[in-house]
């Protein structure tokens, strides 16, 4: 085992971890804290209703569309399987399996 050459002092380490924990939790709590205080209607309501799909599409887009044809096709296969079976583990296994196979084939 290679010992690290130097490490950050313990106090600073735990202060930093505490700060990171606060930063993360405030991001997790802020959405509810803000939205439970206002009533959304009209355009704002349509904005909020589009957010879940938009977030999911955004998470998927770069890895699906810019990582080469194998990943793009595998994403399409995953979508088709998910549409047909509506089952998350099946879609995940089909996706990983087809990505592995297509990467080997198209490499």
């Amino acid at each position: 085992m290679t010992a690290p050459l130097a490490s950050a002092p313990a106090l600073e380490t735990f202060l930093t971890i505490g700060g990171m924990a606060l930063a993360t939790y405030s991001s997790r709590a802020a959405g509810l804290a803000l939205m439970s205080r206002i009533t959304v209607t009209g355009r704002m309501e349509r904005f909020m209703k589009a957010i879940p799909g938009a977030i999911l599409a955004s998470i998927v887009a770069p890895s699906a569309l810019t990582a080469g044809p194998a990943d793009a096709i595998a994403t399409g296969i995953t979508a088709a399987i998910a549409w047909k079976f509506g089952n998350l583990p099946i879609a995940m296994i089909a996706g990983v399996g087809s990505a592995l196979a297509l990467r080997a084939l198209l490499a």
């Binding site: 879940p52 999911l56 998470i59 998927v60 995953t78 998910a82 509506g86 879609a91 996706g95």
Partner: peptide, 14 residues
């Protein structure tokens, strides 16, 4: 790819 697959499946699920 497991993450791409899961998020794609959840998008379809919506």
């Amino acid at each position: 790819f497991a993450f791409t697959a899961v998020f794609m499946a959840l998008l379809v699920g919506l």
